[in-house]
Amino acid sequence: MQARAIAALVMLASGAPVLAAAPAACKATAYLTFDTGSQSQAELIAATLNKHAIKATFFLANEKTVRGDWSLDPSWSAYWKARVAEGHAIGTHTFDHVYWQQDLAHGAMLVKPQFGAHGGQKQTMDAAAYCRELRRVDTRFVELTGHHIDPIWRAPGGHTSPNTLAAAQACGFRHVAWAQAGFSGDETSSEKFSNAQLLAGMLNHLKDGDIIMGHMGIWSRKDPWMPANLDPLIAGLQQKGFCFATLREHPDYKKHP
Rank of each mutant, 00 (worst) to 15 (best):
L203E: 02
V10N: 05
F115N: 10
R83C: 09
K222G: 03
A3G: 05
C131I: 04
V10W: 13
I6W: 07
A117G: 11
A53D: 14
K254A: 06
T65Q: 03
D96V: 02
K255W: 04
F58S: 02
A105L: 07
G214Y: 02
R248Y: 00
W153T: 11
K64S: 13
P113F: 12
I152V: 15
G158Q: 12
H215T: 07
R248M: 00
R135G: 11
T92C: 08
I152T: 13
N204G: 09
M11A: 14
K112C: 15
Y253E: 08
L19E: 08
G185Q: 08
I212L: 03
A24Q: 15
C131E: 11
F183W: 15
A13S: 15
T246F: 05
A56P: 12
W100Q: 12
A46Q: 10
A105R: 10
K255R: 14
G185D: 09
I6P: 01
T65S: 08
A196Q: 14
S194P: 04
A56H: 11
K64H: 06
H256I: 14
A155I: 05
Q197V: 00
R136P: 07
L144Q: 09
A25H: 09
K192W: 08
Y31F: 14
Q197T: 01
A166Y: 00
A30I: 06
R83Q: 15
V111M: 12
M226E: 14
A155L: 08
S220V: 05
S14N: 05
V66F: 12
I211W: 01
D35T: 05
I211R: 01
H250V: 07
S161L: 02
M216R: 05
F59A: 01
G15D: 13
K27Q: 15
H106E: 14
H256Y: 06
A47F: 05
L49K: 08
I234H: 00
I218N: 15
A128N: 12
L60T: 01
P151F: 06
K207E: 13
K222L: 12
Y130W: 15
